[in-house]
Design a protein around this nucleic acid. Structure first.
Length: 550
RNA sequence: GGCCCCGUGGUCAAGCGGUUAAGACAUCGCCCUUUCACGGCGGAGACAUGGGUUCGAUUCCCGUCGGGGUCACCA
């Protein structure tokens, strides 16, 4: 019995690896092109950290005219979740991060390096596992999971480094004949990597983000093919990223300590190793401690959260880019109109330690993003959001022509757009009073400010409507009219005048316009009153004022 | 516990041997303004700690402390 015969016994039908090497040739790309991927497992919703990774990976590939693909790592069927793949695909789509290759629906994929779903690559892994066995670099292991558990316990009790390695690697010592015999007798088994590494030797590695790191060599005979015939992450990573011709692995830094193993695997398989960039995860402050954003505890961990509250995708991406490269902020200030694709991301400038997620900052970014939208975009986006999450808003927005005017207040023709919208969720509260049906439906508690004597308020409003209000007035005339009105009632025309001699007046123009503002909108804080009145129109204005005169 | 990574204001962060230690968010004050949201100006606020090396350390080295990761037939 030799390795070859053992390999044939285990994987009689596996193709020779040369078949795959030819089928998936080197990619013909320009020098420096980065081929990278987003490779999540379909075990639940997409995490903001995953989106962060995908954003960075895609950006880099676009910057270098490379390839960004989506590979689904579904080798653990136990943890798999229903519609997991479409969840991932749709989340990427929601943020405009569609891949060039890979899964595009739950079952469909594009690209020449597939399948892009690991569960459908079983025979590929088996070919490479067979190759490893043939080379004497892997072997079948007949230890049961329970035996493995026991082994770990004894090791822990004896304070020995746990694992399947060296003298503890029982099956490694079996003769080929013993192995063959057990297999023929139908004993279940897994395939383990036969590590040549030594724990007392160091391996140096240069990570693009983390820089130089030094680890002990891997000496663990890790499993490469599980009992169900599917590979473990490590083996799949080596085989897939070689065959898919990935040049850069961009992944979360929890993988950093696996680098020695991965490098070893690439080496033993005869593959050229890719470059690694381990990015620090996004953290959350939890009672003074840093921890990863948790799917269970933090709603903002799920990317669906941002869609739900209506934070534009641009805002989320800009915020994330900000965390990735702080120079983004300066770039953005200098290039207000530019598309974020034009920003050049630098991997080696990324922070080595995890940033705390800052919702306040995200909202600030979002405010700026939305303030740069024109009324039509604000309209379209909030309508799209409302259709899914807020029927009442949707109904309001049905009157498109009017809504555009409302949303255009201090936005159209303004170089200083309002910044009071951070998310589409905020829209309704901001504009609801502008709609007559909502305004009159609502029972309003008018909170008058300085002038709060109702009969005086009615007087002032009467005079305003009867004598001064002119629906066609331009802003200057409009304001002058109000000043005249103020004067007529003993209020200063200018705030400054009033401040100089407060005793001389009952108040100032501001107090008068506040009356009008509160009467028309039911609130003290609103955008520019003149613009509001232009949008409302004379009919609505009269109706609103009459409501108070009643 | 072993191994590995990290430690600049409340947060994100520039700086990487000599700096008044940038900037952004948040916060406070003032100005602008008929309200608010903006905008402008200003304030407060940081190199975890102890040793080295050096003429000089936030920057380099070691220890301590603190935080994080990893030690699966999960990814």
């Amino acid at each position: 019995m030799n390795y070859k015969e053992l390999a044939d016994l285990i994987f009689p039908n596996a193709k020779d690896i040369s078949y795959y090497e030819e089928k998936y040739p080197e990619r013909d790309l320009q020098e420096g092109a980065i081929v990278t991927r987003f490779a999540p497992s379909p075990t639940g919703f997409v995490h903001i950290g995953g989106l962060y990774q995908a954003l960075i990976a895609r950006k880099l590939s676009k910057q270098t005219k490379g390839v960004f693909f989506l590979r689904v790592e579904d080798t653990d069927q136990k943890r798999e979740v229903e519609n997991g793949v479409s969840g991932i695909v749709n989340s990427l789509k929601d943020f405009g991060l569609e891949p060039d290759e890979g899964m595009i629906t739950e079952t469909r994929e594009i690209g020449n390096y597939g399948p892009y779903q690991q569960s459908r690559r079983k025979e590929i892994y088996q070919s490479y596992a067979k190759y490893m066995i043939t080379q004497g670099k892997a072997y079948p292991c007949f230890c049961t999971p329970e035996e493995g558990e026991e082994l770990r316990k004894t090791q822990e009790q004896a304070k020995i480094r746990p694992g399947y390695y060296g003298v503890w690697a029982k099956c490694r010592k079996l003769s080929l004949e013993e192995m063959a015999e057990k297999i023929k007798s139908g004993m279940p088994y897994i395939i383990r990597f036969k590590s040549q590494g030594r724990e007392d030797k160091k391996i140096k590695h240069k990570d693009i983000i983390k820089g130089n790191v030094e680890f002990p060599e891997n000496d663990q005979d890790i499993v490469i093919i599980k009992a169900d015939g599917l590979p473990t992450y490590h083996f799949a990573h080596a085989v897939d990223d070689h065959l898919m011709r990935t040049t850069h692995i961009i992944r979360s830094d929890e993988w950093l300590s696996s680098v020695p193993l991965h490098l070893q695997l690439f080496q033993e398989l005869g593959f050229k190793a890719p470059k690694y960039a381990h990015i620090a995860p996004i953290m959350k402050n939890d009672c003074g401690n840093k921890r990863k954003l948790s799917k269970r505890k933090d709603p903002e961990a799920a990317v669906s959260y941002y869609k739900k509250v209506g934070i534009p995708k641009q805002a989320v991406k800009e915020y994330l880019l900000n965390i990735a490269n702080s120079s983004f902020e300066n770039w953005r200030r200098a290039n207000k109109e530019a598309d974020i694709d034009d920003f050049e991301l630098q991997l080696n400038k990324m922070s080595v330690s995890g940033a705390l997620f800052d919702m306040v900052k995200l909202l600030d970014v979002s405010k700026i993003v939305i303030s740069n939208f024109d009324a039509i975009t604000v309209y379209n986006e909030s309508l799209k959001w409302a259709q899914e999450y807020d029927k009442e808003l949707e109904e309001m927005l049905l009157d498109k022509e009017y809504s555009l005017k409302v949303l255009g207040i201090e936005r159209n023709n303004s170089n200083k757009p309002r910044k009071d919208l951070a998310k589409w969720e905020d829209v309704k509260e901001n504009i609801i009073y502008m709609y007559d049906n909502k305004f009159f439906e609502e029972k309003i508690e008018y909170e008058w400010q300085k002038v709060n004597n109702l009969s005086q308020i009615k007087d002032i409003l009467n005079v305003y409507l009867g004598k001064y209000y002119d629906e066609n007035a331009d802003k200057e005339k409009w304001f002058n009219d109000i000043k005249d009105l103020a004067e007529e009632f003993g209020f200063a025309r200018e705030v400054k005048e009033y401040k100089k001699e407060p005793d001389k007046w009952k108040g100032h123009v501001g107090d008068i316009s506040t009356i009008i503002r509160v009467a028309l909108t039911g609130r003290h804080n609103t955008p520019d009153l003149y613009e509001i009145m232009r949008v409302l129109g004379s009919q609505s204005i009269e109706k609103r004022i009459n409501k108070i005169r009643e």
